[in-house]
Structures are given as C-alpha cells and as structure tokens.
Design a protein around this nucleic acid. Structure first.
Lengths: 211, 211
DNA sequence: CGGAATGTGGACTGTCAAGTCCAGTAACTT
DNA sequence: AAGTTACTGGACTTGACAGTCCACATTCCG
C-alpha cells in the first residue's frame, strides 16, 4: 500500500507494441473463460497462468495487479455478451424475432445444463460491493445492453408494432431485469423453467403495448 | 480429505443441549450479517470469531466446517427473508397491498443506498456453482418464496381480483425473477430506478390478468 | 554488430485463511 | 464430592495466493 499502488488507478499500461497485444488478449480471453466457469473469487492468477502457459511476471507485465486484469475481463465479457444480443435487436422487426431471441437464450442455458448464469450478472454480484471501478464498468455494461434492447423496441414503435406510449428505455430495463432474475433462478434450480417463465412474462408485458 | 471429512454430509451435529443452542444461534446470526454485508467469499472464520467474541474451536464445536456453517447461514437468511414477505402475501387482498409491498422493497433498498442485493440472491450467485448442498437449499428457499407469493395470488383469484385463467405459480415465479433482476441492477447502478421499473412491470403484468 | 528497450521465466516472500490439537474449565449426574 | 461429559481458549500446522525480484532472452534501432 505504498504510493506505487496508486498506479492501479491508471487503468492499464498503454497497449505494449504488436504481438504483445495478442498475448495480452489471449490472457484476457482465458481469464474470462475461467472466471465465467468458476466465479470471480475462485480463480487465482496461478490458474490463469496455467491455462495460458504464461508465467507470473508476464501477468504483471501486462496488468498492474489482479483487479486490473479483472477489469479487462469485464470489458471482454461486455463485448461478448453485447455481441451476442446486438444482432437480434439491430434487426428487430416483430414478435417472432423476440420469441426466437427467447428460445435462443433458453436453448443456450439448457445446453449448459443451466450451469452459470449471465457472465455479467455474476460478475456484478461478485464485485459490486468489492470493487467500485468494476461496479461502474458493469453498470455501464448493463446500460449499453439496455440501450441495445431499447433501440430494437424503438424500431417496433416506429413500425407501429408497439404503441407510441410505450417507453422503450423502461421496457428494456424491465426485460433485462426479468432475464437476469430468470437466469439466476434457473442456475439455482438447475432448470430452465424459471427462465422461460420470466422471459415469457417480460414479452407478454411488451405485448400489452401492442396497438 | 480423509474419511473423517465424510461427516460433513451429516448436516450438523444434533443440537447440543440448551444454552449451547443460543450460542450457536448467536454465531449463525452474526455470520449471516457478515456474509450479507461483505459477500460469502469475503468472510473468514476469524471474522466471525471476532464479531461474536467466540474462539476458533467453538466454531468447530458447533459446526463441522465452514460450509456447514454456511448452510446454517442460508437457513437463517431463508427465515429472515420469508418472514419479511410472508405477512404481505398472507393477507393479500388487492392491488394496493401489492403497491405497498413494492414501495416497501424500494424504500428498504434506498435506505441502504442500494448496497447489497437480495441476501438469498447473492448467496445463490456465490454458491450455486460451488456447493451443491447450498444450491439445493437456495433452490428450496426460492421455491418456498414463490409458494408464498402464489398463495397470495391464489387469494386474489378467489376474490376475482385476478381472472381464473391466471396461473398463480407461474406469475409468482415471474414476479420473483423481476425482483431478483431488479435488485441486482439496482445494486450495480447504486440507483433504485431499475428496481422500481422491474417491480412496476411485474405488477403491470399481474394487472393484465385483472378481469 | 552492439547496446538499449522491451519482453519472459520462475524462484522467492509475506500474509492470511481453514482446519487441528490439546490442555483447561464449567456443568451435570448420582 | 467425584467423575464424567459438555464446552472453551488459543497456539499451531499446512497450504494457497498476491505480489516481488532478478537473471535471461529477444527485438529494435543506430
């Protein structure tokens, strides 16, 4: 806890040079996988080292410390998750698209036997009270996610699939909350049923704004 | 990991005698508080020892090991949470009661500056992939919680505040999912707004089953 | 081609946590 | 009151993990 530690706040050393960036990315990717599978608190730097075949000092070469790396992991998961959902909502036309989205999520969880919930959700739960930088990152990630959903809903308003008095932003938040809650309950019960019910209810609520 | 460890599965030694039970309860209560405030993974036995003014061997006298104690903590939180929500749903008559319930939850989170989400939710997130006994306990706790809500909704069906085609069990799950998701997002954003939106949406969905 | 900057390996340290041990004290029983 | 059982204190062991250090390699550039 000397003054050196202050450097933690400098989010990361500027990107190194060339292939160093690839190495760094490989570390972040592997770390993201491990963290997702085992939970934030259950992954040690040695685990990451082992999974990437990289040595301890490399980790400290690319990252100031563990939370610095974790912040990179959050960014990584943010990109992954938003990347998964963006296509649906960028071309969202009608209810069929939403149902396909629902089915995709349910099938995805079923394929994992409901192991692990939402990558961002569990990070949020594990870090919100522990690391304020992480909390803000995750808060931002949820906002972006909500914005993506809201954009899709706005398109539905414009095409008169939703009434004009529907508030896309609020509806997006309610959908996201149902998804998060449904994922948590499905994970806990090891059963997709709660997730299905939650998503169906969220979509039914959207439908109540149909003209 | 010798054969001795097998005894972990025997949920706990039978209740000791008399005031030992009080001591045990005091430990569980303090542990539940700590775990709630800091998160499961951030509480050591020494922390609990210090908070209760009890010595190491006492902990191991009352509990086989840490997860054994954690299981007791889960039971404790289950009782606390269900105890908080049962009154509302046991005497649930109409929409006003539900709005009061919503306001109560929001006010409660606001009073804590949205620090910490649902005690059961964060336990679930932290332990689901780590401890199968805990996961089953928490799954049971969510089921009970859902049943309590469903009982209230059943009363609303009987009094024709809800239509007969409303499925109280499913609706209860959707309400619970919205609550969990809303709490998580509120905790992450340090803002009650997402929680309010999620609960309002859940109640609006219930209202769509009004006659 | 030579030397600075950048990147890499792995041994080492300090801390902290779970779980053990055993010696001691209170309480209960007849 | 004696002896058995129930409970208590805290020192100790073991292992894991974050973070440091320094010697070695590679690349880059005059």
């Amino acid at each position: 806890m000397n003054t050196e530690t202050m450097h933690d706040e400098l989010v990361a050393p500027p990107p190194p040079t060339q292939k160093g960036r690839e190495q760094r990315q490989r570390i972040v990717d592997a770390a993201a996988d491990l963290v997702f599978e085992r939970g934030v608190t259950e992954v040690s730097l040695d685990d990451i080292r082992e999974a990437t075949g990289v040595s301890k000092s490399q980790l400290y070469h690319y990252f100031n410390n563990k939370s610095d790396l974790l912040h990179a992991v959050i960014e990584c998961q943010r990109e992954r998750v938003l990347g998964n959902h963006r296509p649906t909502f960028q071309s969202l036309e009608g209810w069929d698209d939403l149902m396909r989205w629902r089915d995709m999520i349910v099938a995805h969880q079923a394929a994992r036997s409901c192991r692990n919930g939402c990558p961002l959700g569990s990070l949020a739960n594990g870090l919100a009270e522990l690391d304020d930088v992480a909390r803000n990152q995750l808060s931002g990630a949820f906002s972006s996610w909500g914005r993506i959903i809201a954009e899709g809903l706005t398109r539905m308003v414009k095409s008169h699939t939703l009434r004009a008095d529907a508030d896309p932003q609020e509806l997006a938040v309610s959908v996201l909350a149902s998804l998060q809650g449904g994922l948590l309950m499905a994970e806990t019960a090891r059963d997709t049923r709660p997730l299905e019910i939650a998503l169906d209810a969220a979509i039914a609520h959207l439908k109540s704004f149909a003209p």
